[in-house]
């Protein structure tokens, strides 16, 4: 994923932040021990959110440990592992793996090919654990690539293509009482991530002649407003589904991510652009 689904620094209490961090450490630890050390290439806070969400919903018990790790060998710190950790680790590997496959195919990226070699073993393991989910991720990303290759102008189709992948991942049990709400949450969140990635990379994609779903929209005078509108609609759907769930544990952290944290990158980009524009207009 793309580093958008996170907490804003200072947004929650120190205690809450430590807990959030502990789930992240637990994820890292699970990747290393369960899937091989190179799989921690895929480590991100985004999937940590999903772990905490599923843990809050299903409350299947948490294992806490004090660990040392390679990047932080001097201090012991807390790691929390729960039932969702292994699942989310596998899903993240699958997502990264198939994304890299597509990068190799489309952009012939050498970096991607190298990264793939590292992830091969980890992906094999993930696929043996969750074959159906991995297949769904593969199909979903394939479909998205196809749409992008055809220069698809239907922004809903593009957004939902990625959103549906997230919907599949987040609905841990496909058919329980909360599956529809989790799918809706995933659809909105995934759609937002897709839009944010497109928004952030717009200039770079233009320069390099790469596909960007916002190309048509960018020609409008109200581009910024429209983008904000769409992303708000997507988070609106995500939040509505979130509020349907009977969550209690860590609800403050999860809400902070959904209502505030996801906009951090967006705010940084907007502030930088305004500053650049102001500088230019004063020259």
């Amino acid at each position: 994923m793309f580093g958008y689904v996170t907490l804003r620094p200072g947004a929650v209490s120190e205690e809450d932040f430590k807990r959030y961090r502990a789930f992240y450490c637990g994820l890292c630890n699970t990747l290393n021990t369960g899937f091989g050390i190179t799989s921690s290439l895929t480590l991100s806070y985004d999937i940590t959110f999903v772990i905490m969400l599923l843990n809050s919903l299903y409350e299947g018990g948490e294992g806490k440990a004090q660990i040392r790790c390679l990047p932080h060998p001097l201090h012991l710190h807390s790691a929390i592992i729960c039932e969702a950790t292994k699942y989310c680790a596998a899903m993240n590997i699958a997502l990264s793996y198939h994304k890299l496959l597509d990068d190799v195919r489309d952009e012939k990226s050498v970096k991607a090919r190298a990264a793939l070699l590292f992830l091969n073993g980890a992906y094999k393991k993930a696929r043996s654990m969750y074959p159906k989910k991995c297949e769904a991720i593969e199909r979903g990303l394939s479909r998205l690539c196809e749409l992008e290759r055809e220069n698809c102008k239907d922004i809903d189709a593009l957004i939902n293509s990625f959103g549906n992948i997230m919907a599949d991942i987040i609905s841990y049990h496909d058919d329980d009482m909360f599956a529809p709400a989790l799918k809706s949450l995933g659809l909105g969140l995934g759609g937002f991530v897709y839009m944010m990635d497109a928004y952030e990379d717009f200039d770079k994609d233009q320069r390099e002649g790469c596909f960007n779903p916002l190309t048509e929209l960018h020609q409008r005078n109200d581009y910024e407003d429209k983008v904000n509108d769409i992303m708000t609609m997507l988070m609106g759907e995500c939040a509505e589904a979130f509020e349907y769930l009977p969550l209690q544990l860590d609800v403050g952290i999860l809400r902070s991510v959904i209502y505030d944290g996801v906009w951090e990158k967006y705010d940084i980009i907007r502030t930088r652009e305004k500053r650049n524009r102001q500088t230019f207009s004063m020259l």
């Binding site: 509108d229 708000t232 988070m235 609106g236 759907e237 939040a239 209502y259 505030d260």
Partner: peptide
Amino acid sequence: PSATYSRQRGTYST
């Protein structure tokens, strides 16, 4: 949903 979301988002003053 957007309106409800924006209202809630506004309470996160950071």
